[in-house]
């Protein structure tokens, strides 16, 4: 008998991500590619680097590894991992994001990165069965209302580890409130944690601090695109966003400190 059976975690997860998975299309991410890439660059891939460091400390990363990074964006995780392993394959359907990733790779002289320009759901997993030593999906799980199915597909292509990372707590709550954007009513991280446990996946858990750092212009653009996911932008929104960012900016850098929950396990 499950000790948490009073909650249907599968349903709770689905409800929690339904709206964000609906509005966050590839075309939205194409419009966000430029500002997001600037953030990753300014942050020096902070969240990806922290995940890499976790596994380096655990002593499990090997330089002959092949890694699959689902929803790589401009490479926050792909780039630091590519510095340490043989090959990183990025799954990234938004072509602007993929271009930013390859441009970043070129700039850093990394020639061991490939891109599959599809959503993870479109990838035929039988073509990649047990091909990767680690499969990662970082800050992108909101696109999977059918999470378990997608996680099982990740396990199919992994011969080593699976690693999921998701933000803990809601960031920029005041700003979201001011512009009337939906604030996730549920803590998605704990929902994710309980959902996996209920399904018999017992991951290791690390809750790590990290920082997203944006140049001011990129920060403003990202918040404007965010509001436009839900409705047209007004002058009032523009003013609220600029004021909020100005209040949280030091030396031209808008910095959001946060925590992410990293859930990882060895595939049986």
């Amino acid at each position: 008998m499950s000790m948490t059976e009073s909650v249907d975690w599968k349903e709770a997860w689905k409800e929690s991500v339904d709206e964000s998975s609906r509005v966050s299309t590839s075309s939205y991410w194409n419009s966000r590619a430029c500002d997001y890439a600037k953030m990753v660059d300014t942050s020096d891939c902070d969240h990806g680097r922290r995940i890499l460091n976790l596994f380096l400390e655990e002593g499990i990363i090997r330089n002959d590894w092949n890694v699959l990074d689902i929803a790589s964006g401009p490479g926050a995780l792909t780039l630091p991992f590519a510095e340490r392993v043989r090959n990183v394959m990025a799954i990234e359907p938004a072509h602007q994001m993929a271009s930013c990733l390859m441009e970043n790779a070129r700039r850093q002289g990394l020639i061991n990165i490939g891109v599959i320009p599809k959503t993870w759901q479109e990838v035929k997993v039988s073509d990649y069965e047990k091909q990767f030593d680690m499969v990662t999906c970082c800050h992108a799980l909101w696109q999977f209302p059918d999470l378990l199915e997608q996680v099982r597909r990740m396990e199919t292509v992994s011969r080593g580890y699976c690693c999921l990372a998701h933000g803990v707590d809601v960031s920029e709550r005041e700003l979201k409130k001011s512009v009337g954007a939906p604030i996730e009513g549920r803590d998605q991280f704990i929902t994710l944690f309980n959902y996996l446990n209920d399904e018999g996946i017992y991951p290791n858990v690390n809750i790590l601090p990290y920082s997203l750092m944006w140049p001011v212009d990129a920060a403003i653009a990202s918040k404007e695109r965010f509001v436009e996911k839900y409705r047209p932008l007004t002058d009032k929104d523009r003013a609220i966003i600029r004021e909020y960012i100005a209040c949280h900016t030091t030396d031209g850098i808008y910095k959001i400190p946060g925590r992410m929950g990293v859930l990882w396990w060895k595939v049986g």
């Binding site: 948490t4 009073s6 909650v7 249907d8 709770a12 929690s16 009513g185 803590d187 309980n194």
Partner: peptide, 8 residues
């Protein structure tokens, strides 16, 4: 039941 309503 919503996840946030669980009183652990």
């Amino acid at each position: 039941m919503a996840a946030t309503t669980v009183d652990w």
